[in-house]
Design a protein around this nucleic acid. Structure first.
Length: 613
RNA sequence: GGCUUUGUAGCUCAACUGGAUAGAGCACUUGACUACGAAUCAAGAGGUUGCAAGUUCGAAUCUUGCCAAGGUCACCA
C-alpha cells in the first residue's frame, strides 16, 4: 500500500475507532505539507469536529498519536491549528527510491483498453499555423499520456481535403499558375498551395471592389442598407452574399466544386495534384514537430456518410421531418436548440458527416473512448453531436470527449488570415531553433561536438522552448502567445528542465561506477532530498490526472517543479564528494531516478531531452 | 438578446478541485562561479483574486446579481 493510502485508510480507521463514525478513506482530506511547516503530508481535521465533538487541535493530536503508534512508516507528527502534519520515515522513502531506480520504464503495461484521439485535422488549402501547433501538441501529448497508462492509442486526423476552399486555390492556380510547380517556384509545397488561396482572395476582392463602385453595387447598397449604415460596413457584411449570388469568380469556384462532385476527370486530377503538394508539405511539418499519425480519414471519403443513420434515426423518431423534406432534431429538453441534420434537398450538412464518421471510426477501430481535439469555438457542435449519438443509442456515446482548447491570441490581438497576422508553423519552428542556436553559441558548452550533433541539440532546445511555452498553459484557457517569451531559455521553460537533466547526466558521468546498493544505509535525509523524492512519488498521480482531465499542463507544471527542486538540491548538496559513501550512493541514485522521471515526463509532453547543451 | 467560457502581481501563468500567510517565471534591485555545468542558486520588492452580497469553522475556488472580454446561436465547414 502506498504511503498516501496508508494515511487515508489509517485516518478513516482512527475516526471509526476513536469517534465511532464511518468515513470513506477516499474522502479524507489530505495534501502535501507546505514548505514552511515540518512534515511530509498533512491531514485536514476540520471535517471531524462535529462527530468528535472536540476542538480541531485535540482531534489532530488524537489522530496523530493513533497513526504514529500504528504505522511504522509514520514516525512523527505535529499539529498546527486544524492541520495534522505527518512525517514519513526515511527508510520508507529510501525503499521507494530503490524501487523506482530498478524500474526499466514508468510506462504501464497494456491492459486491453483502446482510445482513439483525433487531432490536427487541417484544411488542405493552406499551411499549418500556430493554432494547429497547440492542437497538435495537446493531441500528441494526450496520446502519449494514455499510452503511458497502458492504453492502445490510435492517433487519427480528418483531412478536410474537399470543398470550396481548395477549389479556390485550384482555380487561381489554373487561371494564373501557367502550370508552375512548387519546385519550380522554390516554395515549400503546402505554402505554395496557400499562396494560390491568397491569390484567389485578391482576385475576388478586386472584382468585389469594382462591383461596389459600379451601378449594381450602388443600387444594392442604397436599397438594402440598414439605417445609418455606411458603405464600408455594409459591403463588409455583404461579402458572402456577393460571393454566392453575384461574383463571377465565386461562380467559377462553385462550378468547379460541382464538377468535383461529378467526378470530372480534369478537376479531379488537378485536385489530386494540388492536395499531393499539400500533403508533402504537411509531412515535413509533422516530422519537424516530431509527431505522426496511425490513421487518416479524408473528408472526401466521409462527407457523404451519415445519411443512413439519419434514416435509422427517423424511424426511431430521434429526428423529425419538416414539410419541405429537411430533417431536424429537437434538443430543447437538453437546453439546446432545434438542429438541422439533413437539407431539404436531401444533402448532408457538417454534422451529418460527423455522425457518419464517428460510427465508421467505431467500426474501424472499436475504441470505447474517442476524443476530438478541436478548438472551443466548436463547443456547441460537439455538444449537439454527442447528444445525438446518445439518443441514437450508440454504445460508445459515453466515451466521446471533446478536448476543447482555447484559441491563441497574439500580443497584438487575434490571429486573422485576412489581416495577415497568422503565425506560420514552419517559420515559427525555424525561428525558435535559430534563437536556441544563437544562445547556445554565445554560452558555449558544446565544444568538441560535430556540427550535426550540435544542430540536433539546437533543434531539441528550440522546440522544447516553443512546445513547453504552449503546453504549460491549461488547455481549456485561451492563451496569449508572445514570440519573445516563447524562445526564453530561463525560468519556467522547457530548456530549464532540459538543463536539470543535462546536469544530472554530467554528474552521473563524472561519478563513474558507483555502488548504489549501500544507499539504504543513508538515514539522514535532508529537506530538499525528501522534497525531491516526494515529488517523484507523485508521478503516477499526475499522469493520471492529466489523462482524466485531458490536460498535459498538469504534467508540465510537475516537470518544472521537479527540475526546480533538483537545481536546488544540486546546489545545496555535494554529490560526488558527499560527506559519506552512503550519502553519495543515495544521491547518485536520486539523480538517476530524477533524470529518468524528467525524461519520461517530458517525453509524454512531446519534448526530447539532450544529453548536453 | 439566449446559451457558454474567462477575469489572480506591471506582463505571462499556477494554486493538487473548499484548507494554513494566494505561489512561480519574466521584468526590476542585490548577493553567490579556482564547488559535480551560473541556461543555476539565494534574497528583496510587487495582491482588496473584476465588483457586491450569500453559503461555510474556512472561499480565488460553490450560489446569486451586476461589470468587462471571448466563443456560439447558418439548409457554412
Amino acid at each position: 500500500m502506498s504511503i498516501t493510502e496508508i494515511i487515508k485508510e489509517g485516518t478513516a480507521l482512527a475516526v471509526k475507532e476513536l469517534y465511532d463514525h464511518e468515513i470513506n478513506a477516499g474522502d479524507v482530506n489530505m495534501n502535501v505539507t507546505r514548505k514552511e511547516f515540518d512534515g511530509d503530508y498533512s491531514v485536514v481535521v476540520f471535517p471531524y469536529t462535529k462527530v468528535a465533538r472536540k476542538k480541531p487541535e485535540q482531534i489532530a493530536e488524537d489522530l496523530g498519536n493513533f497513526l504514529v503508534e500504528k504505522y511504522d512508516d509514520l514516525t512523527k507528527f505535529n499539529v498546527i491549528k486544524g492541520f495534522l502534519n505527518l512525517e514519513v520515515s526515511d527508510s520508507y522513502w529510501n525503499q521507494y527510491l530503490a524501487e523506482m531506480a530498478s524500474k526499466e520504464t514508468y510506462k504501464k503495461p497494456f491492459h486491453g483498453e483502446k482510445i482513439m484521439i483525433e487531432f490536427s485535422s487541417p484544411n488542405t488549402n493552406k499551411p499549418l499555423h500556430l493554432g494547429h501547433v497547440r492542437n497538435i501538441l495537446l493531441g500528441w501529448s494526450s496520446s502519449k499520456i494514455y499510452e503511458a497508462l497502458g492504453y492502445e492509442v490510435n492517433k487519427v486526423q480528418i483531412v478536410n481535403d474537399r470543398g470550396i476552399a481548395i477549389c479556390k486555390s485550384m482555380l487561381a492556380w489554373q487561371m494564373l499558375g501557367k502550370g508552375e510547380t512548387p519546385e519550380a517556384a522554390g516554395i515549400k509545397s503546402d505554402h505554395y498551395v496557400g499562396k494560390w488561396y491568397v491569390e484567389f482572395e485578391k482576385l475576388f476582392q478586386a472584382e468585389y471592389q469594382a462591383w461596389q463602385k459600379a451601378i449594381n453595387g450602388q443600387f444594392t447598397f442604397s436599397t438594402q442598407k440598414k439605417k445609418e449604415q455606411d458603405e464600408a460596413t455594409f459591403f463588409k457584411g455583404f461579402k458572402n452574399t456577393y460571393f454566392n449570388e453575384h461574383s463571377q469568380i465565386g461562380a467559377d469556384a462553385k462550378a468547379m466544386l460541382l464538377k468535383w462532385e461529378d467526378n470530372d476527370e480534369e478537376v479531379r486530377n488537378l485536385w489530386t495534384k494540388m492536395n499531393g503538394w499539400v500533403y508533402k508539405g504537411f509531412d515535413t511539418t509533422y516530422k519537424n514537430l516530431g509527431v505522426e499519425f496511425d490513421n487518416l480519414y479524408f473528408e472526401s471519403d466521409t462527407y457523404l456518410l451519415g445519411k443512413d443513420i439519419i434514416d435509422d434515426g427517423l424511424s426511431k423518431e430521434v429526428f423529425y421531418k419538416k414539410e419541405d423534406g429537411s430533417v431536424w432534431i429537437d434538443l430543447e429538453d437538453a437546453k439546446m436548440d432545434h438542429k438541422l441534420v439533413l437539407r431539404s434537398d436531401g444533402t448532408s450538412v457538417y454534422i451529418t458527416q460527423d455522425i457518419g464518421t464517428v460510427e465508421k471510426r467505431f467500426q474501424d477501430y472499436g475504441a470505447k473512448k474517442m476524443v476530438y481535439v478541436v478548438a472551443d469555438e466548436q463547443n456547441y457542435h460537439f455538444k449537439v453531436l454527442f447528444e445525438i449519438m446518445k439518443r441514437m443509442g450508440a454504445s460508445y456515446a459515453d466515451g466521446l470527449f471533446h478536448l476543447s482548447y482555447g484559441m491563441i491570441d497574439l500580443t497584438t490581438g487575434k490571429m486573422k488570415s485576412r489581416e495577415g497576422t497568422i503565425v506560420d508553423a514552419d517559420d515559427l519552428m525555424k525561428e525558435v531553433i535559430e534563437a536556441a542556436r544563437a544562445n547556445a553559441i554565445e554560452k558555449g558548452g558544446l565544444e568538441g561536438l560535430d556540427e550535426a550533433t550540435k544542430d540536433d541539440i539546437y533543434r531539441k532546445i528550440g522546440l522544447a522552448a516553443l512546445k513547453f511555452f504552449i503546453i504549460k498553459v491549461n488547455a481549456k484557457k485561451r492563451m496569449i502567445f508572445n514570440p519573445e517569451e516563447s524562445v526564453d531559455l530561463q525560468g519556467n521553460t522547457g530548456p530549464y528542465i532540459q538543463y536539470a537533466f543535462v546536469r544530472i547526466q554530467s554528474v552521473l558521468k563524472k561519478a563513474g561506477d558507483v555502488d548504489t546498493s549501500i544507499a539504504s544505509k543513508y538515514t539522514d535525509l535532508g529537506p530538499t532530498e525528501k522534497e525531491l523524492i516526494g515529488q517523484i512519488y507523485r508521478l503516477d498521480e499526475v499522469v493520471k490526472m492529466s489523462a482524466d482531465q485531458f490536460d498535459p499542463s498538469f504534467l508540465a507544471a510537475y516537470c518544472y517543479d521537479m527540475a526546480k527542486t533538483y537545481h536546488r538540491f544540486n546546489h545545496d548538496h555535494r554529490i560526488i564528494n558527499a560527506e559519506s559513501e552512503e550519502a553519495k550512493a543515495f544521491r547518485i541514485r536520486l539523480c538517476e531516478v530524477t533524470g529518468k522521471v524528467l525524461k519520461f515526463g517530458m517525453e509524454l509532453l512531446g519534448i526530447e531531452m539532450p544529453e548536453r547543451m
